[in-house]
Structure formats: structure tokens, C-alpha cells
Design a protein around this nucleic acid. Structure first.
Lengths: 105, 105
DNA sequence: TTGCTATTTGTCAATATAGCCAAATAGCAA
DNA sequence: TTGCTATTTGGCTATATTGACAAATAGCAA
């Protein structure tokens, strides 16, 4: 793999890596419904707000979400909504895998 | 997040996590063109065959690839080709991020 | 059998990630 | 100002990942 290609795949992998955590995936799904503040997301996920804040900063670094401060809350929203279109394909992988598991019984 | 929902998001995240590595992403892209054996992929990526083998086992555990032994080679192929459709969206995230970087200069 | 090739698995060190608590920061309200 | 809420950041430990080398396994060919 040449350096150029490597850099390109690293950039793409960073996006997928950011999505590769259950809480972050849940957050993205939630933001697909509309903007949410950190507080709300922390309650929905059921984790410490500092933990959610760090997850959001990972999503933001990956370019997946934007934030906007209003009052003393910070609202996050999806930067690129097409992300959500992929989830049905991911789900088909999960389902095919589950089916393969059943087949082997 | 209820236990049920948590388990569902963990399953989805596992798929995305498997894609969240440059070498594995490259492998998936390569397999989108057709089946390849470990040997070929190791040469293309430029890494030790044992390293590629482990990457492939991660992709396989995630349900993203299948393998078939023929002769003394093992050929891998994509299990669920829709994965590739997502890459254009990932690319748009990467590009938007790059543009945002330029804007801030 | 022996030798050769392809692949996987075990081990290990370096590195990265996750999540909690505590502390720092910022805005609003009294 | 003080206090309250929302959020981020620092520090920490536990855990997971990566990738190389060596060793084990399997199939083919002589």
C-alpha cells in the first residue's frame, strides 16, 4: 500500500472507527431524529456526562457531528445524514451472522 | 439504554469496529473487486501474512467476509456487498472534514 | 516419507481506548 | 457578587488492539 493510499484509508477508517462503539452508534441514531444536548444524551445512554462528552468529541473529530452552543447548553447534530443510510446494511450483516449461527446448530 | 437495545447496538458497533482499521478497509475494498487469498492480500497491503490473517479473522467474526479453501490457499470474499455502498458516504465525511479544515485557515 | 507453500495460532510488548471521579470553565439567574 | 446548571478536561486504572516473530497445522508434490 503506497503512502498516499494508506493516508486515504486511514482517514476513512477513522470515520468508521468513530462509529464502532455502541454508545456512539446510539448517539448517532438519536441525532438522526434531531439535535440533542449532552445532558439529554447522557440520560438516554445512561452514562456519566463526561463519558458522553468524550464520545461526542470523538464523533466531532471524525467529522460526523456538529455542535452549537445556545444558552448554557451545547446542541449536537449530525453533520452528514447519509451515515444513517448505512445502518440497514450493517443490520443485514448482523442478521446474516445471527442466521449463520443458527444454521450451525 | 435498556439491555436489549444495548445488545443490539453492540452487535452493530462490532461490524463498524471491524471496518475501523485502514488495512481492513483496504481489504474490503479489494474483495469488492473479487475474491483474494491471504497471500495476495498480504502483498497488496504490505504486511506480514500473520497480521493479515488476523485482520481477516476479525472481518470474518463480524460477518463481513466468507472464506473457502481451495488447494492449499484460502480465498476470501465479501459476505454482504452493500458494505461498499457506504464508502461514498464515508468519503463525503472525510471531504467535508478536510474542507472544514481549510475554512479555518 | 520429505519438502514446500499457505495459513493460522500463541506470545509478547507497545500503544490505544473506555469510563469514572474530580476539577476547571462558562453562562444564566438571583 | 454568589450560586446553579451544563459541559469539558485532566488524571487514573483497567482493558483491548496492533503487529511482529516463531511455532503449529494442512495440503500438495516429488
Amino acid at each position: 500500500m503506497s503512502d498516499n493510499i494508506k493516508i486515504r484509508y486511514e482517514a476513512r477508517a477513522a470515520v468508521l472507527k468513530a462509529l464502532g462503539h455502541p454508545s456512539r452508534l446510539f448517539i448517532v441514531d438519536e441525532l438522526a431524529k434531531g439535535e440533542r444536548c449532552v445532558n439529554e444524551l447522557a440520560a438516554l445512554v445512561g452514562a456519566d456526562m463526561s463519558t458522553i462528552s468524550k464520545h461526542l468529541s470523538i464523533l466531532k473529530s471524525a467529522g460526523l457531528v456538529n455542535d452549537e452552543k445556545r444558552g448554557n447548553s451545547i446542541f449536537y447534530r449530525l453533520a452528514i445524514p447519509c451515515i444513517v443510510n448505512f445502518f440497514s446494511c450493517v443490520e443485514s450483516v448482523v442478521k446474516a451472522k445471527a442466521q449463520a449461527g443458527l444454521d450451525s446448530l
